[in-house]
Simulated scan of single mutants.
Amino acid sequence: MHRGKGMKFVGDSRVPAERKPNIPKDYSEFPGKTEAFWPNFLLKEWLVGAVFLIGYLCLTVAHPSPLERVADPTDSGYIPLPDWYFLFLYQLLKYEYAAGDFTVIGAVIMPGLAFGALLLAPWLDKGPRRRASQRPIAAGLMLLAVLATVYLTWESVDHHDWEAAAEQGEMLDEEEAAAVEEVDTEAEGYQIYSDQGCIGCHGDQLQGAGSAGPALFDVPYDAESIKDIAVNGIGEMPADQFDGSDEELDLLAEYIASGGNPEAGGDSEGEEEGETTDEEENAEDGEETEE
C-alpha cells in the first residue's frame, strides 16, 4: 500500500501498551557457570575467612607479640623501630638526600610521587589487554614499587642492631620493678640527678636505658666511688659529666648509693643501730642478773 510520495507502509512501529520489565534470567538457566549469592557464595567466603582467622590465631599463640619495658620519653638512647610495613620508609629516611635538611623530600615528596604513580597507573595505560607483558606501563610501575619496597625493607632489617634493641627493651624482673617503684623522685638528690642530665642515659627512675647506660638502683659502689665515677668517668661513660658544686656531688652520690631512696637507707641504718642497742641492753640485763 502506497501513501504520499513514494512512501511504503511496512507495519506499526508504535511501542506496545503492555511493557514487560527487564528481568534478568535466573541463575538456574546457566548451569555450571554461576551460583546463588546466598547461601552458596557467602558460605565459601566465610569458610575461607575462617581458615585464615584460625591460622592467624595459631600464629599469635605460637609467636606472641614481643613486649618491651614501659616507654620512657627521657630515654635518648632508645633505638626506634616501626612496624614491618613501614620499614621501607624508615630505611629511606636514613639516606643523605632523604633525611636531615631533606626530610620533607624523603617523608612527603618521594612517597607522594610513588603512590601517586600507582594511582595514575590505570589512566596511564588504558589498554584492554590483561597480560602484564602487554601492559608495560602499569606492570613496570608495579614491579618497580615491589622491588623498591622489598629492597628497602631488607636493608632496614639488615642494618638494625637487634641485640641492642633487645637489651634496651628487656623488661624488668620483679625485684628490679620493686626497686624502681621505691625510687624517691621528690628527694633533693633526684633533682640534681635530673638537672645533670643523668636521666638521658640512666632513666627517669634509675632503671637504665639499655645500651645507653646501666641501671643505678643497685650499683656495687659506695658514695666515694660514685663521686669519682661522676668526675672521672668509667668504661664508656666519659669524664667531666658532672658540672655542679661539691655539695651537690655529695648529695647525688649518696642518692645513687642508696638506690634512689636515701630515707629508706637512713631508716635501715637506724633500725640496725636500734637493734644493736636492744642487744646491748639485753646483755647488760643478763650481766646484772648474773651478779
Rank of each mutant, 00 (worst) to 15 (best):
E281L: 11
Y85E: 14
E271F: 12
M1Q: 12
A239F: 01
R129P: 04
A212L: 11
T60L: 15
E284L: 00
W154K: 02
I256N: 02
Y190K: 01
A215L: 07
P39V: 04
E291A: 00
R135I: 00
C198I: 04
E284Y: 04
A138Y: 07
T103F: 11
F115V: 15
P214T: 12
G213R: 02
E254M: 10
T277A: 11
E188K: 05
W84S: 12
G140Q: 03
F88Q: 11
L47A: 13
E18F: 14
E273Q: 11
S76Y: 09
S13K: 09
S156W: 00
L141G: 05
N22G: 01
M237G: 00
A50M: 11
Y95P: 02
D218H: 15
Y151H: 10
C201Y: 01
D243P: 05
T34R: 02
E35R: 14
E281R: 09
I226W: 00
E291D: 12
S28M: 07
D125T: 04
A253E: 05
G49R: 09
G233Q: 04
S65F: 15
W84E: 06
M110N: 05
D161T: 06
T149I: 07
A114C: 03
S28E: 14
P66Y: 07
D222V: 08
D101N: 13
P214E: 08
G116M: 01
S13Y: 13
L144D: 07
A121S: 14
E18A: 10
A212N: 11
W154F: 09
I199C: 00
T149A: 06
G200Y: 12
I226P: 00
G4T: 03
L93E: 15
E68Y: 05
Y97E: 11
V15W: 08
E175R: 14
A139M: 13
I192Q: 04
F86D: 12
L119T: 03
W123E: 01
P24A: 12
N282A: 13
E170Q: 15
F242P: 00
D195P: 00
L53T: 13
E181Y: 03
D125F: 06
E275K: 09
S268E: 15
A98D: 03
T74A: 11
A148R: 02
E263M: 14
